[in-house]
Write a protein that binds this DNA or RNA. Structure first.
Lengths: 253, 253
DNA sequence: CCTAAAGCCTGACGCTGCGTCAGGGTCAAG
DNA sequence: CTTGACCCTGACGCAGCGTCAGGCTTTAGG
């Protein structure tokens, strides 16, 4: 008997089988994202079946748009956090998609204009661009916040140290996860558990607004606007949103 | 009288007004994409109204996804080529959008699976990814080409020197532009002009397939499949496609 | 007029995910 | 023993700026 049993693949075989390049394998290796099972005495990389599975996962997550660093995290550390990560990613992609669609529409607009005026004169060109520019103008914040409040928000963002922001995001992620769970389980909005969640929720919001009432007002406007979702993507499901809203409403009564 | 008249802006003013950063201005300056109208004796950049217009154009084209290099070209050299460039860009963006939508659907699939099995066990995780993988599997070429033909195509692509490929693309762009024009003008497919275009068209196709009949067959299958557009984005409008098809049909009679 | 705070300048490195040489071992076949 | 065909490790390149660093200039205030 040979003792080992499992078949090993060399770099190029392995790469072809998985649909990536050898260079990519090197790259993943150096990043510690995917290290070959063995190496020959002369340094040749030898990959096994397990490596293949992992590479598939990497490719898949990459397809979904995860950066390699995060793929490494998800695969190595907090696999259970996959759920949150997925939702997060989906929302980001959806947002990208919206902008992309906008760009396409803008181009179409421009094409129509160009088709109308047969030749794109130097001035016509400028006008076309202006038109695109108008529709592009993403002035959504203006819809919700007064100029002042906007300035304050921007300023506030600058004064917050980066680490705090990141910690805050992690807090949000954690809380959202719990809220999602509660919503899914059908917890009563009046229950103590829901009330606790609502309290933490508004606590975090206060943390974000810094207690500025103007900003609070803007946020509330956004929340009550049925057009929700346009300004910035919400990192939680509709169900969770509805749940936390009714919970907070219940707390006011 | 002061003599000059036009108001000049300093870097930060100008940047804020246009919604870009000062660093971006530096960048554009070094690329020769946008040079300030004047400089003070001490080297400060001073931008004028004209610069503002140009910057708007740059920002707009960037929004549409043009790389800076191409923006420079379009703005400096072949503005009339804007039409072609726009269509090209729209198609690329649309393709991106499709892939993005695919990714989002994949994520949703995965989320459903995760919701079903409450906890993402280490094996469940793998399965989820597999599912995503399956739907991702973009095996469109297999739909149209036999294995052999695929191999030949791949091989052929390797044997073609880069410059030839680029020249070929330029040929295509030029021809497509003419076809678009002819289609828009309502040129008769039987006319000499249409026939000339059809001849050049099939000439280019032969150049691509290298005369390999198997590949030709695959192409034809693709052309006749109503699902057109899935394999790779076509860089011309439906009208142009219809036009060239009827022209080629007319030539066979 | 003097000074401190703001602004501006020019490098130059960093980030993402590899592509693409360059220079040099290794391995199986003839 | 000699080819090729593969493999390895650097190291630079690309796109579009972000982000210091180090050092002038301009400006508002006293």
């Amino acid at each position: 008997m040979s003792g080992s049993g499992e078949r090993l693949y060399r770099a190029s075989e392995f790469a072809r089988a998985a649909g990536v390049t050898v260079r990519a394998l090197h790259h993943y290796d150096r990043l510690g994202l995917l290290k070959p099972k063995r190496r020959t005495a002369s340094g040749y990389r030898l990959y096994g079946e397990g490596d293949f599975v992992r590479l598939q996962q990497i490719v898949t997550l990459k397809f979904i748009g995860f950066p390699l660093k995060q793929i490494k995290d998800v695969l190595d550390r907090d696999r259970p956090d996959l759920r949150t990560a997925l939702r997060f990613q989906r929302i980001i992609l959806a947002e990208k998609g919206r902008r992309l669609a906008q760009a396409v529409r803008a181009i179409e607009e421009a094409e129509v204009l160009l088709a109308a005026g047969t030749e794109p004169g130097r001035e016509a060109f400028a006008k076309i661009i202006e038109v695109i520019e108008m529709q592009n103008d993403t002035d959504w914040t203006k819809k919700y916040y007064s100029e002042e409040a906007q300035a304050r928000i921007a300023e506030r963002q600058k004064t917050i140290p980066r680490e705090v922001v990141e910690q805050g995001q992690r807090d949000w992620m954690a809380l959202i996860a719990e809220v999602e769970a509660a919503a899914a389980e059908g917890v009563e909005p009046e229950s103590a558990r829901a009330q606790a969640l609502a309290a933490r929720w508004s606590e975090l919001i206060r943390g974000f607004t810094g207690g500025d009432p103007e900003i609070q007002k803007g946020l509330n406007k956004m929340y009550s606007d049925p057009q929700w979702g346009a300004p910035f993507p919400k990192p939680y499901s509709d169900e969770a949103g509805a749940f936390i809203q009714s919970a907070m409403a219940a707390s006011k009564k």
